[in-house]
Amino acid sequence: MNDLDFSFEDSPWEAFLRTKRAGDTVSAANLLTMLEEESEQAVEDALQALEDGGLNLDVSDLPKAPGSGAAALRLRQEAQLVEKGLPLEELEPNDPLRLYLEEVAQLSPSGNEQALAAKCAAADERAMETLTNLGLHRVLEIAKDHVGLGVLLLDLIQEGSLGLWQAIQGYREGNYAACRDYWIRFYMAKAVFLQARANGVGQKLREALEDYRAVDERLLSELGRNPTLEEIAEAMHISPEEASVVKKMLDDARLLAQAKKQPEPEEEKEAEEQAVEDTAYFRMRQRILELMSVLDETDAKLISLRFGLEGGMPLSPEETGKRLDLTPDEVVAREANALSKLRSER
Protein backbone atom coordinates (compact mmCIF):
# COMPACT_ATOMS: atom_id res chain seq x y z
CA MET A 1 0.00 0.00 0.00
CA ASN A 2 1.46 3.38 -0.93
CA ASP A 3 1.45 6.30 1.49
CA LEU A 4 -1.65 7.97 0.06
CA ASP A 5 -3.83 4.86 -0.13
CA PHE A 6 -5.97 5.87 2.84
CA SER A 7 -9.76 6.13 2.82
CA PHE A 8 -12.04 8.72 4.32
CA GLU A 9 -15.54 8.37 5.65
CA ASP A 10 -18.21 7.89 3.01
CA SER A 11 -20.13 10.95 1.86
CA PRO A 12 -23.89 10.84 2.61
CA TRP A 13 -24.76 9.62 -0.89
CA GLU A 14 -22.11 6.89 -0.76
CA ALA A 15 -23.34 5.68 2.63
CA PHE A 16 -26.92 5.77 1.34
CA LEU A 17 -26.15 3.69 -1.77
CA ARG A 18 -24.16 1.15 0.26
CA THR A 19 -27.40 0.20 2.01
CA LYS A 20 -28.93 -0.84 -1.34
CA ARG A 21 -28.75 -4.13 -3.20
CA ALA A 22 -29.18 -5.00 -6.89
CA GLY A 23 -32.80 -4.52 -7.90
CA ASP A 24 -33.55 -2.03 -5.12
CA THR A 25 -35.14 1.32 -5.95
CA VAL A 26 -33.49 4.63 -5.06
CA SER A 27 -35.53 7.78 -4.53
CA ALA A 28 -34.36 10.48 -6.95
CA ALA A 29 -35.53 13.18 -4.53
CA ASN A 30 -33.41 11.69 -1.72
CA LEU A 31 -30.33 11.30 -3.89
CA LEU A 32 -30.70 14.74 -5.43
CA THR A 33 -30.79 16.36 -1.98
CA MET A 34 -27.66 14.50 -0.90
CA LEU A 35 -25.82 15.58 -4.06
CA GLU A 36 -27.04 19.18 -4.03
CA GLU A 37 -23.70 20.60 -2.82
CA GLU A 38 -21.51 17.99 -4.49
CA SER A 39 -19.39 18.47 -7.62
CA GLU A 40 -20.44 17.36 -11.09
CA GLN A 41 -17.88 14.55 -10.81
CA ALA A 42 -19.61 13.30 -7.65
CA VAL A 43 -22.95 13.32 -9.48
CA GLU A 44 -21.42 11.28 -12.32
CA ASP A 45 -19.92 8.88 -9.76
CA ALA A 46 -23.29 8.46 -8.02
CA LEU A 47 -25.10 7.69 -11.27
CA GLN A 48 -22.35 5.27 -12.24
CA ALA A 49 -22.72 3.57 -8.85
CA LEU A 50 -26.44 3.15 -9.53
CA GLU A 51 -25.69 1.62 -12.93
CA ASP A 52 -22.95 -0.68 -11.63
CA GLY A 53 -25.14 -1.81 -8.74
CA GLY A 54 -28.17 -2.62 -10.90
CA LEU A 55 -30.32 -0.14 -8.94
CA ASN A 56 -33.54 1.50 -10.14
CA LEU A 57 -33.82 5.30 -10.03
CA ASP A 58 -37.37 6.40 -9.16
CA VAL A 59 -38.00 9.92 -10.47
CA SER A 60 -41.73 9.91 -9.73
CA ASP A 61 -41.14 11.70 -6.42
CA LEU A 62 -39.49 14.72 -8.04
CA PRO A 63 -41.68 17.85 -7.98
CA LYS A 64 -43.39 18.81 -11.22
CA ALA A 65 -42.72 22.53 -11.44
CA PRO A 66 -44.81 24.31 -14.10
CA GLY A 67 -41.98 26.62 -15.11
CA SER A 68 -42.20 29.36 -17.73
CA GLY A 69 -40.97 30.15 -21.22
CA ALA A 70 -41.09 28.25 -24.50
CA ALA A 71 -39.67 25.01 -23.07
CA ALA A 72 -42.24 24.92 -20.27
CA LEU A 73 -45.02 25.60 -22.76
CA ARG A 74 -43.83 22.71 -24.94
CA LEU A 75 -43.65 20.40 -21.90
CA ARG A 76 -47.27 21.20 -21.01
CA GLN A 77 -48.33 20.67 -24.63
CA GLU A 78 -46.64 17.27 -24.74
CA ALA A 79 -48.26 16.20 -21.47
CA GLN A 80 -51.67 17.08 -22.93
CA LEU A 81 -50.89 15.20 -26.15
CA VAL A 82 -49.90 12.08 -24.23
CA GLU A 83 -53.17 12.21 -22.30
CA LYS A 84 -55.01 12.25 -25.65
CA GLY A 85 -52.96 9.36 -27.05
CA LEU A 86 -50.46 11.44 -29.06
CA PRO A 87 -52.70 12.39 -32.01
CA LEU A 88 -50.37 13.37 -34.87
CA GLU A 89 -52.85 15.84 -36.35
CA GLU A 90 -52.34 18.15 -33.37
CA LEU A 91 -48.66 18.56 -34.23
CA GLU A 92 -47.36 20.71 -37.07
CA PRO A 93 -46.50 18.73 -40.25
CA ASN A 94 -42.79 19.53 -39.90
CA ASP A 95 -42.63 19.09 -36.11
CA PRO A 96 -39.61 16.81 -35.33
CA LEU A 97 -41.69 14.80 -32.86
CA ARG A 98 -44.39 14.17 -35.46
CA LEU A 99 -41.83 13.15 -38.07
CA TYR A 100 -40.27 10.70 -35.62
CA LEU A 101 -43.64 9.21 -34.62
CA GLU A 102 -44.56 8.75 -38.27
CA GLU A 103 -41.27 6.96 -38.89
CA VAL A 104 -41.69 4.62 -35.90
CA ALA A 105 -45.28 3.85 -36.93
CA GLN A 106 -43.93 2.32 -40.13
CA LEU A 107 -41.76 -0.17 -38.21
CA SER A 108 -43.13 -3.61 -37.41
CA PRO A 109 -44.41 -3.68 -33.80
CA SER A 110 -44.22 -7.46 -33.33
CA GLY A 111 -41.57 -10.14 -33.35
CA ASN A 112 -39.87 -12.74 -31.15
CA GLU A 113 -37.58 -10.43 -29.19
CA GLN A 114 -36.26 -13.18 -26.90
CA ALA A 115 -35.09 -15.25 -29.88
CA LEU A 116 -33.61 -12.19 -31.56
CA ALA A 117 -31.78 -11.26 -28.35
CA ALA A 118 -30.17 -14.70 -28.28
CA LYS A 119 -28.90 -14.11 -31.82
CA CYS A 120 -27.63 -10.67 -30.82
CA ALA A 121 -25.62 -12.29 -28.04
CA ALA A 122 -23.92 -14.25 -30.83
CA ALA A 123 -23.10 -10.97 -32.67
CA ASP A 124 -25.79 -11.32 -35.36
CA GLU A 125 -25.93 -7.78 -36.82
CA ARG A 126 -29.17 -8.31 -38.72
CA ALA A 127 -30.86 -9.51 -35.53
CA MET A 128 -29.54 -6.40 -33.75
CA GLU A 129 -31.13 -4.13 -36.34
CA THR A 130 -34.47 -5.95 -36.16
CA LEU A 131 -34.45 -5.96 -32.36
CA THR A 132 -33.62 -2.25 -32.27
CA ASN A 133 -36.57 -1.41 -34.53
CA LEU A 134 -38.90 -3.50 -32.38
CA GLY A 135 -37.57 -1.86 -29.23
CA LEU A 136 -38.29 1.67 -30.46
CA HIS A 137 -42.00 1.06 -29.90
CA ARG A 138 -41.26 0.18 -26.27
CA VAL A 139 -39.03 3.25 -25.91
CA LEU A 140 -41.97 5.43 -26.93
CA GLU A 141 -44.32 3.76 -24.45
CA ILE A 142 -41.90 4.21 -21.55
CA ALA A 143 -41.16 7.81 -22.58
CA LYS A 144 -44.85 8.62 -22.10
CA ASP A 145 -44.48 7.65 -18.41
CA HIS A 146 -41.79 10.32 -17.98
CA VAL A 147 -43.61 13.20 -19.69
CA GLY A 148 -44.07 16.23 -17.46
CA LEU A 149 -40.86 15.69 -15.49
CA GLY A 150 -38.85 18.46 -17.13
CA VAL A 151 -37.44 16.70 -20.20
CA LEU A 152 -38.93 17.04 -23.69
CA LEU A 153 -40.45 13.90 -25.19
CA LEU A 154 -38.00 13.70 -28.10
CA ASP A 155 -35.07 13.99 -25.67
CA LEU A 156 -36.58 11.22 -23.53
CA ILE A 157 -36.87 9.06 -26.64
CA GLN A 158 -33.25 9.75 -27.54
CA GLU A 159 -32.05 8.78 -24.06
CA GLY A 160 -34.30 5.73 -24.04
CA SER A 161 -32.88 4.65 -27.40
CA LEU A 162 -29.39 4.78 -25.89
CA GLY A 163 -30.66 2.58 -23.08
CA LEU A 164 -32.18 0.19 -25.62
CA TRP A 165 -28.87 -0.12 -27.41
CA GLN A 166 -27.11 -0.73 -24.08
CA ALA A 167 -29.57 -3.57 -23.39
CA ILE A 168 -29.05 -5.13 -26.82
CA GLN A 169 -25.27 -4.91 -26.65
CA GLY A 170 -25.02 -6.11 -23.06
CA TYR A 171 -27.56 -8.94 -23.16
CA ARG A 172 -26.18 -12.43 -22.66
CA GLU A 173 -28.95 -14.54 -21.13
CA GLY A 174 -32.17 -14.41 -19.10
CA ASN A 175 -35.34 -12.38 -19.58
CA TYR A 176 -34.56 -9.94 -22.38
CA ALA A 177 -37.75 -7.87 -21.92
CA ALA A 178 -36.86 -7.14 -18.29
CA CYS A 179 -33.30 -6.23 -19.27
CA ARG A 180 -34.57 -3.97 -22.08
CA ASP A 181 -37.07 -2.12 -19.87
CA TYR A 182 -34.52 -1.62 -17.09
CA TRP A 183 -32.01 0.09 -19.34
CA ILE A 184 -34.58 2.21 -21.16
CA ARG A 185 -36.05 3.44 -17.86
CA PHE A 186 -32.62 3.98 -16.31
CA TYR A 187 -31.38 6.20 -19.13
CA MET A 188 -34.59 8.24 -19.13
CA ALA A 189 -34.54 8.57 -15.34
CA LYS A 190 -30.93 9.73 -15.50
CA ALA A 191 -31.89 12.48 -17.97
CA VAL A 192 -34.77 13.60 -15.74
CA PHE A 193 -32.49 13.55 -12.69
CA LEU A 194 -29.80 15.69 -14.32
CA GLN A 195 -32.39 18.17 -15.60
CA ALA A 196 -33.88 18.46 -12.11
CA ARG A 197 -30.41 19.16 -10.71
CA ALA A 198 -29.82 21.83 -13.37
CA ASN A 199 -33.15 23.42 -12.40
CA GLY A 200 -32.09 23.70 -8.74
CA VAL A 201 -34.57 21.11 -7.49
CA GLY A 202 -32.03 19.76 -4.99
CA GLN A 203 -31.82 23.12 -3.20
CA LYS A 204 -35.62 23.40 -3.16
CA LEU A 205 -35.94 19.92 -1.67
CA ARG A 206 -33.34 20.73 1.00
CA GLU A 207 -35.28 23.86 1.91
CA ALA A 208 -38.48 21.77 2.01
CA LEU A 209 -36.83 19.39 4.49
CA GLU A 210 -35.88 22.27 6.76
CA ASP A 211 -39.36 23.79 6.51
CA TYR A 212 -40.98 20.43 7.26
CA ARG A 213 -38.92 19.97 10.43
CA ALA A 214 -39.69 23.51 11.60
CA VAL A 215 -43.43 23.20 10.93
CA ASP A 216 -43.58 19.76 12.55
CA GLU A 217 -41.95 21.09 15.73
CA ARG A 218 -44.13 24.21 15.81
CA LEU A 219 -47.38 22.30 15.37
CA LEU A 220 -46.32 19.74 17.96
CA SER A 221 -45.86 22.57 20.44
CA GLU A 222 -49.12 24.30 19.51
CA LEU A 223 -51.33 21.19 19.31
CA GLY A 224 -49.78 19.15 22.11
CA ARG A 225 -49.68 16.10 19.80
CA ASN A 226 -48.00 14.93 16.62
CA PRO A 227 -49.54 16.83 13.69
CA THR A 228 -51.06 14.92 10.78
CA LEU A 229 -49.53 14.97 7.33
CA GLU A 230 -52.45 17.06 6.10
CA GLU A 231 -51.92 19.65 8.86
CA ILE A 232 -48.22 19.93 8.00
CA ALA A 233 -49.02 20.23 4.29
CA GLU A 234 -51.52 23.00 4.95
CA ALA A 235 -49.04 24.92 7.10
CA MET A 236 -46.35 24.56 4.40
CA HIS A 237 -48.80 25.54 1.62
CA ILE A 238 -48.11 22.37 -0.34
CA SER A 239 -50.20 19.34 -1.27
CA PRO A 240 -50.36 16.27 1.01
CA GLU A 241 -48.65 14.30 -1.77
CA GLU A 242 -45.71 16.72 -1.78
CA ALA A 243 -45.55 16.62 2.02
CA SER A 244 -45.53 12.82 1.88
CA VAL A 245 -42.45 12.90 -0.38
CA VAL A 246 -40.63 15.20 2.06
CA LYS A 247 -41.62 13.02 5.03
CA LYS A 248 -40.28 9.91 3.31
CA MET A 249 -36.99 11.69 2.68
CA LEU A 250 -36.76 12.58 6.38
CA ASP A 251 -37.62 9.02 7.43
CA ASP A 252 -34.96 7.60 5.11
CA ALA A 253 -32.38 10.04 6.47
CA ARG A 254 -33.18 9.00 10.06
CA LEU A 255 -32.91 5.29 9.19
CA LEU A 256 -29.56 5.88 7.54
CA ALA A 257 -28.30 7.82 10.57
CA GLN A 258 -29.40 5.02 12.90
CA ALA A 259 -27.73 2.40 10.73
CA LYS A 260 -24.46 4.31 10.80
CA LYS A 261 -24.59 4.53 14.62
CA GLN A 262 -25.14 0.80 15.16
CA PRO A 263 -21.79 -0.98 15.75
CA GLU A 264 -20.98 -4.11 13.82
CA PRO A 265 -21.11 -7.31 15.93
CA GLU A 266 -17.46 -8.05 15.18
CA GLU A 267 -16.45 -4.66 16.54
CA GLU A 268 -18.01 -5.52 19.89
CA LYS A 269 -16.44 -9.00 20.13
CA GLU A 270 -12.93 -8.36 18.88
CA ALA A 271 -11.59 -5.61 21.13
CA GLU A 272 -8.02 -6.78 20.79
CA GLU A 273 -8.13 -6.69 17.01
CA GLN A 274 -9.71 -3.22 17.19
CA ALA A 275 -6.78 -2.01 19.29
CA VAL A 276 -4.40 -3.15 16.55
CA GLU A 277 -6.52 -1.33 13.96
CA ASP A 278 -6.47 1.81 16.11
CA THR A 279 -2.69 1.65 16.30
CA ALA A 280 -2.45 1.26 12.52
CA TYR A 281 -4.86 4.15 12.10
CA PHE A 282 -2.74 6.30 14.44
CA ARG A 283 0.37 5.54 12.40
CA MET A 284 -1.47 6.33 9.18
CA ARG A 285 -2.63 9.68 10.61
CA GLN A 286 0.94 10.45 11.64
CA ARG A 287 2.08 9.78 8.08
CA ILE A 288 -0.68 11.99 6.72
CA LEU A 289 0.38 14.82 9.04
CA GLU A 290 3.98 14.41 7.88
CA LEU A 291 2.91 14.64 4.27
CA MET A 292 0.79 17.72 4.98
CA SER A 293 3.77 19.55 6.47
CA VAL A 294 4.70 20.55 2.91
CA LEU A 295 1.48 22.59 2.66
CA ASP A 296 0.99 26.10 3.93
CA GLU A 297 -1.27 26.60 6.96
CA THR A 298 -4.41 27.45 4.95
CA ASP A 299 -4.12 24.50 2.56
CA ALA A 300 -3.37 22.09 5.41
CA LYS A 301 -6.46 23.29 7.27
CA LEU A 302 -8.50 23.09 4.06
CA ILE A 303 -7.54 19.45 3.47
CA SER A 304 -8.27 18.59 7.11
CA LEU A 305 -11.74 20.11 6.89
CA ARG A 306 -12.60 18.62 3.51
CA PHE A 307 -11.67 15.08 4.56
CA GLY A 308 -12.55 15.16 8.27
CA LEU A 309 -8.94 14.59 9.41
CA GLU A 310 -9.55 16.39 12.71
CA GLY A 311 -12.17 13.92 13.84
CA GLY A 312 -15.26 15.63 12.47
CA MET A 313 -17.41 14.98 9.41
CA PRO A 314 -15.97 15.91 5.99
CA LEU A 315 -17.19 19.37 4.99
CA SER A 316 -18.50 20.53 1.62
CA PRO A 317 -16.59 23.18 -0.36
CA GLU A 318 -19.16 25.76 0.73
CA GLU A 319 -18.84 24.88 4.44
CA THR A 320 -15.06 24.79 4.19
CA GLY A 321 -15.04 28.16 2.43
CA LYS A 322 -17.03 29.74 5.26
CA ARG A 323 -14.46 28.49 7.79
CA LEU A 324 -11.53 29.80 5.77
CA ASP A 325 -13.10 32.89 4.19
CA LEU A 326 -12.82 31.43 0.69
CA THR A 327 -15.34 30.93 -2.11
CA PRO A 328 -16.38 27.34 -2.96
CA ASP A 329 -14.52 27.64 -6.28
CA GLU A 330 -11.37 28.73 -4.46
CA VAL A 331 -11.70 25.77 -2.11
CA VAL A 332 -11.99 23.31 -5.01
CA ALA A 333 -9.02 24.85 -6.82
CA ARG A 334 -6.78 24.93 -3.72
CA GLU A 335 -7.78 21.39 -2.80
CA ALA A 336 -6.76 20.11 -6.25
CA ASN A 337 -3.39 21.90 -6.04
CA ALA A 338 -2.79 20.67 -2.49
CA LEU A 339 -3.55 17.04 -3.36
CA SER A 340 -1.28 17.29 -6.38
CA LYS A 341 1.52 18.56 -4.12
CA LEU A 342 0.91 15.72 -1.64
CA ARG A 343 1.10 13.12 -4.39
CA SER A 344 4.45 14.51 -5.52
CA GLU A 345 5.76 14.07 -1.96
CA ARG A 346 4.91 10.36 -1.70
Rank of each mutant, 00 (worst) to 15 (best):
I288W: 07
E38Y: 04
A233W: 04
A233K: 05
L220M: 10
R18P: 15
I238G: 01
A70P: 11
E102H: 07
F6L: 14
D299G: 04
K301G: 01
R254Q: 09
M236N: 06
V201K: 01
S60I: 06
H237P: 02
L219E: 12
V332T: 14
G150Q: 02
L55V: 06
T25N: 07
G54K: 04
L153V: 03
R343M: 15
E9Q: 13
W183V: 00
E297I: 15
I142T: 12
A253R: 12
G23K: 04
K341R: 13
D52T: 15
G160H: 01
G308K: 05
T132Y: 05
Q48F: 14
S7D: 12
E310S: 15
L342T: 09
V104G: 04
L164D: 00
D124K: 00
A338I: 04
A333T: 15
E266D: 09
A65S: 12
G224N: 04
S7Q: 08
D95A: 11
L134T: 01
Q77G: 05
E270K: 12
A253D: 15
T298K: 15
E40L: 06
L302D: 08
E37R: 08
M249C: 13
K260E: 11
E319G: 00
L86G: 02
D278A: 14
S27I: 08
E345P: 05
E277N: 14
L209A: 10
D155P: 04
A22E: 08
L194W: 07
A79G: 13
N30D: 15
E270F: 13
D211Q: 08
E242N: 09
A123L: 09
E173P: 08
G150S: 02
L302H: 01
Q41H: 06
R197A: 12
F8N: 10
Q114D: 09
V43A: 10
M128I: 10
M236R: 06
L156M: 05
H137V: 07
E270H: 10
S221E: 12
A115R: 15
E51P: 08
Y182S: 02
L162S: 11
